[in-house]
């Protein structure tokens, strides 16, 4: 059997000759003579990319991780990228997708911090995660509406005004959603099911301890490293939590860990795998 789907369902060339695309206007394939003057297209695609960002809420805050890899197609181009960005005192922005657009977002967020500083030098008006998220979603949506997108999927984590944890997603289309368990890219296929095992219903995050959340997140990074060919085993992790001190006041800590390794790797399963997909041995 021919395993190439491209040829499935076509008349056999040896028997019937080459396929005529013009039968009953069945296809929009063009004549070979026109192929040279194919219209110039304004195409866009990510060049150097960062893969999944994975995050979840727990009872005192949020935890988020992203590896440090920048891929150029299938080439490992950079292994020292930081894709978790701190904004203000208690907000983190995790970015996957195109790295140059990530850096553009980084500059935009730095500018935002400066403006906040100018108008609120005496403090009080905190720049919080929901504000950062709304701002980013407007930027991404406006860019997509200009057909000139910032090729990223972004997760913003932090706290609401009322002190509850905040976690929300926005991507290159401007599509937004919130959840107690969020991941971008491959992570939404591989990590989210693991995260939802810990937090089946959105409100259940209130029962999750930090250690458990972290354990599951570390496992997610491991699974992603196993199965996502564009993932690395070196990653960064941010934990933001609000703790009530003895005096009763709320204290927010922002902990940014870098150069973490995916621990307890086991490649035993690898020897049992042979072939790929539909390959018949």
């Amino acid at each position: 059997m021919n395993h190439d789907p491209f040829h499935w369902g076509r008349p056999n060339q040896e028997t019937y000759g080459t396929y005529n695309y013009n039968i009953a206007q069945a296809s929009n394939q063009q004549h070979e003579s026109q192929l040279d003057d194919f219209p110039k297209m304004h195409t866009q695609q990510p060049i150097i990319t960062g893969t999944s960002v994975v995050s979840l809420k727990f009872k005192d805050g949020i935890i988020i991780a992203a590896d440090n890899l920048g891929s150029y197609g299938s080439l490992l181009r950079f292994n020292n990228l930081e894709r978790l960005i701190k904004v203000g005192d208690e907000t983190v922005v995790g970015i996957s997708g195109d790295i140059s657009d990530l850096q553009q977002l980084e500059r935009i967020l730095a500018q935002l911090e400066i403006e906040e500083e100018i108008y609120d030098s005496d403090g009080g008006h905190k720049l919080r995660a929901p504000h950062v998220h709304e701002y980013l979603s407007k930027i991404l949506y406006n860019r997509r509406s200009k057909m000139d997108p910032l090729w990223n999927a972004v997760i913003v984590g932090g706290f609401n005004e009322d002190g509850t944890p905040f976690l929300k997603y926005v991507d290159l289309l401007g599509v937004t959603y919130g959840s107690s368990t969020l991941a971008t890219g491959f992570g939404s296929h591989l990590a989210v099911p693991l995260l939802r095992q810990l937090i089946p219903n959105d409100i259940d995050y209130t029962k999750v301890e930090e250690e458990d959340a972290r354990k599951v997140l570390e496992n997610c990074m491991r699974v992603l490293f196993y199965r996502d060919a564009r993932a690395a085993d070196k990653y960064s992790l941010v934990t933001i939590k609000s703790q009530t001190s003895e005096s009763g006041s709320k204290q927010i800590t922002f902990n940014h860990e870098k150069e973490l390794k995916v621990e307890n790797q086991s490649w035993k399963f690898a020897k049992d795998i042979s072939g790929y997909g539909s390959k018949q041995l």
């Binding site: 021919n2 395993h3 789907p5």
Partner: peptide, 22 residues
């Protein structure tokens, strides 16, 4: 999906259109 084939080696008569879909 990854499929064992010579698909990638095939000569493309038409460029694969990769246009941003808003």
């Amino acid at each position: 999906t990854t499929v064992a084939s010579e698909y990638s080696a095939e000569v493309h008569h038409v460029p694969i259109e990769h246009r941003f879909n808003p």
